[in-house]
Design a binder for these strands. Structure first.
Length: 355
DNA sequence: ATTTGTGTTGAA
DNA sequence: TCAACACAAATG
């Protein structure tokens, strides 16, 4: 594959790098793209296309394409590249495969063919958690091998032994709350500065995010904004609650987390450049969460690399860290996940398992 | 011999 | 981003 497009950094520059098709190939010209060409639905319909070995019947579903042999292929696009999701006998089956991929790749607001998963529904929540606990590559692999349903069912087995709340915590401890996708909404990330982890014992909360997410009741006394500050509780991935004093510093005109912050920095071994993330639960409780990762935001939390807490490793019944062995239960060969190179192997430090 | 799924392109 | 088309690579 195009290994030149492995990480975000080279994203743009690699678009077609190293693959330069010599001459734009003077192809047999006139070839139209999308089926919008003329009319395609009218006459040729189900079953009757037998005679037409010409045009393949386009699918009514998104992400589904016809195969020469009458079967259906599913595909989804990710950063200018097609990710093949496999072939299926039923058009709707391919459509469902697309839906699964779409929700894993694009989150809750992905456009789907059928009813999207809902966290409000018991099974929906379980499936979302399942999706969240597997890398894109793993999900795609399951779809291509048609083992998604089985694996999902299997995961529900052990999941039932835990309360939803605990499952949520465990998931967070392994991959983080999955911004915008599952039960927690990402409020914002901040790459901590040297002073955020230095002797000042405070974290500057970007004004924009502070005012939007952490409203501070400022009583205006005599035209002077006065704020006593408040205590905010944040839960980390391990379920530990951190209490920080949150206030506004007139001197520097900035919002800060002070008392309690240094302990967090110390325990998580936060270093300048690491990323601290803040989430809130979607429910009515409005619980706040905090987590951190080393270095810049990972594009896709992905399968958690190397140092997982042993607890997590056992959790999913699959080896999260070392992408599943390149072979499924059927013992069939798997064209390994050099599929989408991505950047699943970035190494993280303490922050990860501390999450 | 078939089927999968990649290469490519035009359109949105 | 997406799907249509052609056809080479992968499978049985």
């Amino acid at each position: 594959m195009d290994t030149s497009c492995i990480d975000e950094a080279s994203a743009e520059s690699c678009t077609f790098a190293g693959k330069v098709k010599a001459p734009p190939t003077p192809l047999p010209l006139q070839r139209m793209g999308s089926g919008t060409s003329g009319v395609y639905d009218p006459v040729l319909e189900p079953g009757t296309e037998a005679e037409s070995s010409k045009k393949l019947p386009s699918s009514q579903y998104k992400g589904v394409v016809p195969q020469p042999n009458g079967r259906w292929g599913a595909q989804i696009y990710e950063r200018h590249q097609r990710v093949w999701l496999g072939t299926f006998g039923e058009e709707s089956e391919a459509a469902r495969a697309y839906d699964v991929a779409a929700q894993r790749f694009r989150g809750r607001d992905a456009v789907t063919n059928f009813k999207p998963l809902s966290e409000s529904d018991e099974n929906g929540a379980a499936e979302l958690a399942f999706l969240a606990s597997h890398s894109k590559a793993e999900i795609v692999d399951m779809l291509r091998k048609h083992t998604y349903h089985d694996e999902l069912t299997q995961s529900r087995r052990w999941a039932n032994k835990f309360s939803n709340r605990n499952v949520t915590k465990l998931l967070m401890s392994s991959v983080g709350p999955l911004p915008g996708q599952i039960n927690h909404q990402l409020l914002f990330d901040k790459v901590v500065t040297p002073s955020d982890v230095g002797k000042l014992n405070r974290l500057v909360v970007p004004k924009q995010h502070a005012e939007k997410n952490f409203p501070l009741r400022n009583e205006n006394i005599d035209n002077v904004a006065v704020s006593k500050g408040v205590l905010l509780n944040f839960e980390d991935g391990a379920g530990k609650v951190w209490r920080f004093r949150y206030s506004y510093w007139n001197s520097s005109q900035s919002y800060v987390l002070t008392k309690g912050w240094s302990r967090f920095v110390k325990e998580k071994s936060l270093k300048a450049g690491d990323v601290v993330s803040f989430w809130k639960s979607n429910g009515p409780e409005e619980q706040l969460y905090i987590g951190c990762k080393s270095r810049s935001t990972l594009p896709d939390h992905q399968a958690v690399p190397v140092n997982n807490s042993p607890v997590v490793v056992r959790l999913f019944g699959v080896d999260i860290g070392a992408s599943m062995a390149p072979q499924n239960k059927n013992g069939k060969r798997v064209r390994d996940m050099d599929l989408f190179p991505q950047h699943e192997s970035l190494i993280k430090k303490q922050c990860v398992n501390a999450l």
